[in-house]
Amino acid sequence: MNDKHILDLIENTTFNSLSESELNTIRLHTAECSSCQKAFAAASISSLLLKERTAEVFEPSPFFHTRVLAHLRERQAANETWAWHCIWRATAALASSMVATVAALAVLTFVIPDGPLSPDFAETSARNAYSAEEVILNPGDFDEQASDGSVLTTLYDAAEDGTK
């Protein structure tokens, strides 16, 4: 065993749990092997350091609980503020999109001029000599002008177009 280094032995388990036979093996080997002797000394000091480290214990201060509760309230308040912020942002986005839609519709209705009419629609309009807007906005002006003949012509022309 003396030619076998003892590093695995001291690293495989805690220093305090080494059995008497294992300690004897270590002593026999370290008497002849200086590198293992240093390693064993370092391992024993490591063990001692760790014991000292864990022996030091702190107790909670008298105000610890109060401080944690205060942090908790702060965090909850921050979360609530964040939730309101999110709702406000969502509402603002919805409102602005609605305004944008209304503005777009207004522009399309009142500002952008009518585009070129299809040939069929232009022909019908020319024949009737009045527009839909005129009929709606000034219904009285057209009551007398629209004769029975023109109504029948318009209706039959539309039916013929449909059958074609």
């Binding site: 001291i10 370092a42 490591s46 350091l49």
Partner: peptide
Amino acid sequence: ARRRMREAVEKLLG
């Protein structure tokens, strides 16, 4: 971890 701790201490002792 034991090996690394031992090596760190051994370095200090050495």
